[in-house]
Design a protein around this nucleic acid. Structure first.
Lengths: 248, 248
DNA sequence: ATCATTCCTTGATCAAGATCAAATTCGGGG
DNA sequence: CCCCGAATTTGATCTTGATCAAGGAATGAT
């Protein structure tokens, strides 16, 4: 669902928070105008399910604000989050009728939506959009596979550090301050949601966050606001060989 | 890399083990002929690395025979396999210069290869191929996310059962016998490779296989040949709510 | 055949994280 | 301002799977 991490959209429209930019330089402006006319917005409360796995899906779109999560649940209630949808991420998949996973709002979420059928028509008439979507999907696949390394081989501590690094990297505040070692942001996820994402229990998440705090690697203001005095220092805890790689 | 699980190719060619079929009904025969002329074959020994992560990749293609694995390695040697490439699976990604993961032969592997540049040209001139590739990539993404559930939330026993079910499902012998409850196949992976795929140690893999054998859920002939007297019974051990879902 | 090598199994012990069970904190609503 | 309930933290204990350490079995070379 989260077709990508790179932006299909930008935030320079007047009438709405986002606007579809040229997916590729070969796009005709007309085609983008079509997108403009097709869109509608919808806002969901935190905890609300946007899409149930198995549902027939009629819309595609992008997250405008807030955070949503893709997740799977086993019969006995074990849950695993398989993707985070942050603002500008694409939701939905052209050519697919049935949603493979639940999409749940982690915070209040606003989505800009297009009806699937017309969007798919546009996809056929504008091959460059298909190319762009392919590229976006390949990026998602890479991200999913990076996450497999985290789930399969990282320690609880490394998992937490990696998640914090990912959120920090995606957070607007980081873009503004990335030169500085100091980074601050709000966690958009509850401890339980973090646990579901990391393949841990919420108690373990809490303990590891406490440990990082105790050691001065992070600071907490309240329960959700994270302050990282030395971002490079946090990265040493992730177990990643490189910084750039893991983007969700 | 493993762009898909559904087949881009079929095995009815005379001159070579595989031949590209109509990727979509709208493909012109000429374009497929172009594919025919572009292809070359290469065989790798078990254990050999076809592609190193970070390498510039010049070829795309399909696995003809054998099994290869996509994997990631951390600095300290922890390894996680992130995809299996079985015969007919696609290797490589159009539009990408750099390989994101290692590709390693698990058994002797033969690959049918196309030079990237001409293949990409074909992709542009034949939009239906791009559509098909997008679809294949979305399937891969779903598979990766199913695997995330396994890595994050399943027990060692469930992991083993899931892997056996996946291999059984992909194995030709299953197609011939799937009506029967009895299924047999050869494990194309060493215990260590299974461990790397499942996020376990090889000892745990061995113990769990022994346990399944002790309980009569599977039978072993030698170390690699698996015999499943009652396939439905195995599926009860996977923790999956459905059978169909998990395909790698 | 014998040896060496690699792969696999099994055993003993350990530790990371899960589970069970209270506290404690915090953010509202009254 | 105080209370309520949800979210979080912390503690005690337990379990699963990891780690350390030998043994076998299959395979191939000498």
């Amino acid at each position: 669902m989260n077709l990508h991490t790179t932006q299909l959209v930008r935030t320079d429209c007047d009438s709405c928070p986002i606007r579809h930019r040229a997916v590729c330089s070969r796009c005709e402006p007309d085609e983008l105008d079509v997108l403009e006319t097709m869109k509608t917005y919808k806002t969901y409360d935190a905890g609300q399910t946007l899409v149930w796995a198995g549902d027939s899906v009629q819309f595609l779109g992008s997250v405008v604000s807030g955070v949503a999560a893709l997740s799977q649940t086993m019969e006995d209630g074990r849950r695993q989050m398989v993707g985070l949808l942050l603002p500008s991420d694409f939701v939905g998949r052209p050519g697919r009728e049935i949603a493979p996973f639940d999409v749940v709002a982690a915070t209040e979420v606003t989505v800009c939506r297009f009806q699937k059928a017309p969007f798919e028509k546009l996809l056929v008439s504008t091959p460059s959009i298909a190319t762009r979507l392919l590229e976006m999907t390949l990026d998602e696949l890479d991200s999913a596979r990076e996450w497999m390394l985290l789930l399969g081989r990282k320690t609880a501590r490394e998992k937490i550090a990696s998640l914090l690094a990912i959120i920090a990297r995606r957070d607007a505040s980081l873009r503004l301050r990335k030169a500085a070692g100091r980074v601050q942001f709000d966690l958009p996820l509850s401890r339980e949601a973090m646990a579901d994402y990391l393949g841990l229990t919420l108690e373990t998440v809490s303990r590891q966050i406490s440990a990082l705090k105790r050691e001065g690697i992070i600071e907490l203001q309240g329960k959700r606001r994270i302050n990282i005095p030395d971002y490079a220092n946090l990265l040493n805890e992730t177990g990643d060989d490189t910084d750039g790689g893991m983007i969700v």
